[in-house]
Design a protein around this nucleic acid. Structure first.
Lengths: 200, 200
DNA sequence: TAACTTAGCAAGCAACCACTTACTTGTCAA
DNA sequence: TTGACAAGTAAGTGGTTGCTTGCTAAGTTA
């Protein structure tokens, strides 16, 4: 039996990927360290060599969301371009990340709502809240700049925005032939802009 | 030890309620028949006297969604009033049901996406799909009646609509002081109408 | 090449899972 | 009052969970 040995860094990444893929395919509620180890192609013991607990895997995944997604979103939100451009780009970045890391939505949403692990819950909440705050900033900027209607309630538009990435997940479930990400963002943006533009 | 005996019908309802409440408070992934039984205040064995399996509890909950929520939504969608009125009422009924049965969103969403039980998955999908079709119908009617802009793509507005009930869930997670249902619906409807109304 | 570190394994742990069994007790019509 | 049945229990079942153990072998450095 050949034994393929890889560094912890590589294995950790493989484990995170396998973890998310299993959440996506089978759901959080029947995800076990056994299955993750199988998917990676390693014994269960080896898995605990690279992460000290299942919880540590989740925390490491959250670190990734903060380092990659949130950083990108923050960059887009503070970019120097029109609010419409920024909002569209924001949505695209958001959606693309969720497509490429399909288990994240479920993990974020479920743990934020139901985890009885305070640290985990707090970190999930912080991510969701930051996303909403950034969306609010872009919308507010657009109103101040005169691009959008000043009678709009920023908070409510942001609330509506937060549902869009999850609408995508529903779309992915409902349409068996797949969803074109770019198109999805354009369509949603199209409707959002109708709601945002100044009333005559 | 006193033993309080109730009829199967009553116990079944208690079990469904406990099941959903536990999903809401602790999440699907750590929901056990033991906890459900504890919450109802009955032994685990008694639980299996009223439902033949855990799966049967879920199926029974789905029956309830179809009998109560979907029936109401269908009634509202085919009502004889303006499309704007119907859409608002539709949203209110939808949201109120999800508030009063808090675990449903998670159950629907999670099982529809991840269940490897084909029957369960199919039924969840059917519910989500029916909701979307009904939303499409209302929007289409509004366009035909000249209430709303004819250049709108009905499909996309319905997709956006489907995100709203989940936006509510996110709102419930993010705002610790609770969410006013009626207000939430009014606010979302207000933005939706801006998007729907005819461009000048 | 010898010493040391690291990634891997198989096997096993207690705790928990959905569910069953064998038996008891409350309710109610005859 | 009694007999049948429905609703309850406590104590299991085998299987799965997250995690640990004791050990081996692959790389790395001296």
């Amino acid at each position: 039996m050949k034994m393929e040995r890889k560094s912890t860094e590589i294995r950790q990444e493989e484990i995170r990927r396998a973890f998310l893929e299993l959440i996506d395919h089978e759901g959080l509620h029947n995800l076990s360290t056994r299955k993750v180890a199988d998917k990676v192609g390693v014994s269960e013991g080896a898995l605990f060599r690279h992460f000290k607990s299942k919880r540590a895997i989740i925390l490491s995944i959250i670190d990734g969301v903060e380092d990659v997604l949130m950083k990108s979103l923050r960059a887009v939100a503070t970019e120097d371009s029109s609010s419409a451009d920024r909002l569209f780009k924001f949505l695209c970045v958001h959606v693309r990340y969720l497509i490429e890391n399909k288990g994240i939505t479920m993990l974020l949403f479920s743990e934020a709502a139901h985890s009885n692990d305070p640290e985990l819950k707090a970190r999930m909440l912080k991510i969701l809240n930051s996303q909403k705050q950034l969306a609010k900033k872009i919308i507010q900027d657009g109103i101040v700049a005169g691009e959008w209607d000043s009678s709009l309630q920023v908070e409510n538009v942001a609330t509506l925005y937060m549902g869009i990435p999850i609408s995508l997940n529903i779309e992915l479930i409902l349409s068996p032939y797949g969803v074109n990400t770019e198109n999805f963002c354009k369509k949603m943006m199209c409707i959002l802009e109708r709601a945002l533009k100044k009333s005559a």
